[in-house]
Simulated assay, not measured.
Amino acid sequence: MTLDPRGPRFSAALTTIVFVIVLLTGSGWLALAQAVVFAVGAYDPRLTPYGLLYRYLIAPRLAPPAEREDGAPVRFAQAVGLIFALLTVAGYLSGLTVLGIVGALFALVAAFLNAVFGLCLGCEAYLLLRRLRAA
């Protein structure tokens, strides 16, 4: 599977907004909704609500992408995001607010870096792990 690289960046922008709201409100339930988005994205990023919004509302208004990217690093990044979202959920819903804040901050920083700078930390981790396995 290959992806339009603008799709994951769009998704990261929406994820950034979600985690800002989670941090402002302390909503473990909103973090749980984001965790579901990450779980779907770990299977296929194109099937997330954000991916569908991009595909049907944003992409048709843009020129075709100059290049496409492999979906495997993005799926891995979504799985990493799922872990941080679940930490956030566990923290907020169990009363361990500090754990919720830490999980949300990590997810927020990663999403922000991807949305604004195109730096996908999960994707970079995936590529590093592949290089380490090959060595």
Rank of each mutant, 00 (worst) to 15 (best):
Q78P: 04
G95C: 07
L82H: 02
V80H: 02
R75H: 02
G95A: 01
V102G: 10
Q78L: 01
G81F: 01
A104C: 07
A85T: 02
G71K: 11
F76I: 02
L99I: 15
L108W: 00
L86Q: 08
V89M: 07
G71Y: 08
A79G: 15
F106L: 15
T97I: 14
L99Y: 09
Y92G: 11
L87K: 08
V80R: 03
Y92F: 15
A85N: 10
T97H: 12
G71E: 14
L86D: 03
L96E: 10
F84W: 14
A72T: 13
T88R: 09
L82N: 07
A107H: 10
L99G: 03
F106Q: 04
P73F: 08
L105V: 15
F84S: 06
L82K: 03
G81T: 08
Y92M: 05
G103T: 09
Q78Y: 10
G100T: 10
G100M: 12
Y92P: 05
R75T: 00
Y92N: 10
L87M: 14
L96C: 04
T88I: 09
G71W: 03
R75P: 00
A72C: 00
A104W: 06
L96F: 14
L87T: 02
Y92W: 05
T88L: 06
T88H: 05
F84M: 06
T97F: 13
Q78G: 03
V74M: 11
L93V: 14
P73V: 13
F76A: 13
L108Q: 04
L96S: 06
G95S: 04
Y92K: 11
V74L: 03
G91A: 09
A90Y: 15
A104V: 11
V89T: 07
F84D: 01
A107C: 04
S94N: 10
A90E: 00
Y92E: 01
A77D: 14
F106N: 01
R75W: 00
L108I: 06
A90F: 14
L93T: 15
S94Y: 05
A72R: 15
L87S: 05
L87W: 13
R75C: 00
L82Y: 04
G91V: 10
L105R: 08
G100L: 08
F84K: 09
G103V: 09
L108M: 02
T97S: 14
G91I: 09
L82D: 13
L105P: 03
L108H: 07
L105K: 01
G100P: 08
G71P: 01
A90Q: 03
A104G: 07
F84Q: 03
V80C: 09
L105T: 12
F84P: 07
I83D: 12
V102F: 06
L108G: 11
T97W: 14
I101W: 08
V89I: 09
Y92I: 10
L82Q: 05
L86W: 14
L108F: 08
A85I: 05
G103Y: 08
L96G: 00
L82W: 04
P73G: 10
